[in-house]
Computed example of a mutant assay.
Amino acid sequence: MHRLTRSFFARRPLIAAAATLACSGATLAQTIPTLYIGMNGGTMEKAYTQYVFPAFEKAYGAKVVVVPGTSSDILAKAQANKDKPQMHVMFLDDGIMVRAIGMGLCQKQKPSQSLGEIYPAARFKDDMASGVSLGMTGLAYNAKMFKEKGWAAPTSWMDLADPKFKGKVVFQSMSSSSFGLHGFLMFNRIQGGNDKNVEPGFKAWPTTVGPNVLEYIPSSAKLSEMIQTGEAAIFPLTPTIVGALKEKGIPVEYAPPKEGAVVLVTAQCVIANNSEPELSQKLAEFLLSPVAQANVLQYGAQIPTNPKAPVAGESATQVANINKWMKTAITIDWESINANRPAWNSRWNKTIEK
């Protein structure tokens, strides 16, 4: 017993030293600021957490943690915690971002070199948000079917109404999909409407595009199967998704409509009244930098909003095409659309998808 007791006390200084070291380590961990960022999970989350955030963390001695979810999920969380935000930065689709700004959930992004470099279409009013990746909704088509039928690639949104596509048009629901909404709004413009007046589109649809539609789908998830089974000939889609489908061996091609594709931006905003306002601004600035955007392009297939992002290989071709199509791309009036969309959705569901 005596020998055991003496041995125990002999070890006490070591135990005390280890305890002191553990405590100092815990204190150090507590001093590392942590930023929580809301964004889509999957490929996007993986690209950012593996190839973008580590450089920021090293530069600023910080930790970035992703809160995964859809744009609607992230917006709901931000709104629920408006008085005491749990997140510092959030990624939202452009239409939902405009809603978030209107709710007072975002703070103005500070001027920076990177912010000044991004495309004008990626800068939101008063710099309350900024685009981190760029896309556009145009037309896509079943390349195998078109080749077998001897059809030329589509060139206009009105090709959706071509009688030869009867029963072969697949259209995403306007009430649940940005792609469907974009396609309908472009059709509406051709009919003489605008983003505040959709009467011409609703009036013309049942006798033009409507008879050609095989199915209205809630999202694009079902498209790959419908292309492979030969059900789908033509449909609204983005060049990025077309590229991803082609990599899987699905016979699909993108076709830029002559009337213009619709700009689709994934945007970020610094959340108002968050606990790390300065560091959050630094993160938002960093995410617009050429190096950050080049990494997300390479590892996440996200098209840069900063044209100075270095690109190479197949990515260079894709970005060059996007830059070319951006010259005729349409930016829609999200404030008017968000104000009227509930009524439009109800009308769409009752009269188009009835």
Rank of each mutant, 00 (worst) to 15 (best):
P68K: 10
P68F: 09
P68A: 14
P68E: 11
G69E: 05
G69R: 03
G69M: 05
T70I: 07
S71P: 05
S71K: 03
S72P: 07
D73N: 13
D73I: 05
D73C: 08
I74N: 01
I74L: 14
I74R: 04
I74Y: 02
L75D: 07
A76Q: 15
A76P: 13
K77N: 15
K77D: 13
K77P: 08
K77R: 15
A78F: 11
Q79W: 15
Q79T: 15
Q79R: 15
A80E: 14
N81I: 02
N81L: 07
N81K: 10
D83P: 09
K84C: 11
K84S: 13
P85V: 07
P85G: 08
P85N: 12
P85K: 09
Q86D: 09
Q86P: 01
Q86G: 06
Q86I: 10
Q86W: 06
M87L: 13
H88Q: 13
H88N: 14
V89A: 04
V89E: 02
V89Q: 01
V89I: 13
V89L: 11
V89Y: 03
M90Y: 07
M90F: 09
F91K: 04
F91A: 08
F91V: 10
L92E: 00
L92P: 02
L92K: 00
L92F: 03
L92A: 03
L92N: 01
D93A: 13
D93P: 00
D93S: 11
D94E: 12
D94L: 06
D94C: 09
D94G: 07
G95N: 07
G95Y: 02
G95H: 03
I96N: 03
I96G: 02
I96H: 01
I96W: 02
I96R: 05
M97L: 08
V98L: 04
V98E: 05
V98H: 04
R99P: 00
R99N: 08
A100H: 01
I101T: 01
I101Y: 01
I101S: 00
G102M: 06
G102F: 05
M103L: 14
M103C: 00
M103N: 00
G104L: 06
G104T: 04
G104C: 08
L105E: 03
L105S: 04
